[in-house]
C-alpha cells in the first residue's frame, strides 16, 4: 500500500478529458474539505472515506509540502469500516435475546424486534471495537493526467474514483489495453481494427 517502501504494486488511472490546472491553494482547501472523518459509533454510516497525509493514515491535516512534491499531488486514501467479528456479534445477540425474552415473558421475538436488537448490539459493539483502518497512497501527476493508486484491490479503486470526483471535479478512467492504445494514438484504421479484433488462440484444434 506504500509508494515509498519496498516493491511497488499499483493501478493506474487517467483523468478523463483535458488535464485540469491544479492551483495548489485551492486544491489543498478541497483536500481539507474532503479529509477523512472518523466513524462515529452511534451514527448509521458503516464506512468512511477521505484524504489523509500520504503515508500517514492518522494525520488528517496534510500540509502543502506533504501534498505537493515535485510535479506530484500526493495524498493518502483512508477507508475505515466497522468490522465486527460475526462470532462475537452472534454471541452478544444470543445473550441480549435471552434477557429480552425474560423481560417480556415471551418465547420468541418478532422479526422487527430481532432487527432492532441486532442494530442495538452492533452499535454497542462499535463503542468497544475500533473500526478497521486502511490507508493507501495515491500519487497524481496533473500534467500527464496519471493517477497511481498503490494497491490493485477493487474497493479502494472505486472509493478513489468517487472521492477524486468530489474533491477535484474530474473523472478517472482505469487503465486497460484500450485506454493505453488510445493514448499512444489510434488512427481511424486502427480504431476499426480494434473494434474488429477477435481473440487469438494457439489451440491446435482451432487450426
Amino acid at each position: 500500500m506504500s509508494a515509498t517502501k519496498g516493491s511497488l504494486t499499483y493501478a493506474r488511472f487517467f483523468v478523463r478529458g483535458d488535464a485540469p490546472e491544479v492551483q495548489p491553494e485551492r486544491a489543498l482547501r478541497a483536500v481539507r474539505l474532503h479529509a477523512f472523518r472518523p466513524l462515529v459509533p452511534d451514527e448509521d454510516a458503516k464506512e468512511s472515506v477521505g484524504w489523509c497525509r500520504f503515508g500517514e493514515a492518522f494525520d488528517l491535516e496534510p500540509e502543502h509540502d506533504d501534498v505537493f512534491v515535485d510535479e506530484f499531488v500526493n495524498l493518502g486514501l483512508r477507508i475505515d469500516r466497522w468490522a465486527i467479528p460475526g462470532a462475537l456479534l452472534r454471541a452478544r445477540l444470543r445473550e441480549r435475546e435471552v434477557e429480552l425474552l425474560a423481560q417480556k415473558g415471551r418465547e420468541r421475538l418478532t422479526r422487527v424486534e430481532k432487527k432492532e436488537l441486532k442494530e442495538q448490539v452492533s452499535r454497542s459493539l462499535r463503542h468497544e471495537l475500533p473500526p478497521r483502518t486502511r490507508a493507501v497512497d495515491v500519487s497524481w501527476a496533473p500534467a500527464s493526467g496519471v493517477v497511481r493508486l498503490f494497491t490493485q484491490a477493487a474497493g479502494p479503486a472505486a472509493a478513489l474514483g468517487e472521492l477524486f470526483k468530489r474533491t477535484f471535479k474530474v473523472e478517472l478512467v482505469a487503465e486497460a489495453p484500450y485506454t493505453l492504445a488510445a493514448r499512444l494514438g489510434m488512427s481511424a484504421a486502427r480504431e476499426a481494427a480494434w473494434a474488429a479484433a477477435e481473440p487469438t488462440t494457439l489451440a491446435e484444434e482451432a487450426r
Binding site: T4, K5, S7, L8, T9, Y10, A11, R12, Q152, A174, E175, A176, P177, L180
Partner: peptide, 19 residues
C-alpha cells in the same frame, strides 16, 4: 504484469535512495 489491466505489481526498482 497483469494482462487485462496492464497493472504492475511487485515492481522492484533498480536503485532506490535510502529513505
Amino acid at each position: 504484469l497483469k494482462a487485462e489491466t496492464l497493472a504492475l505489481s511487485s515492481l522492484r526498482l533498480p536503485t532506490v535512495l535510502d529513505d
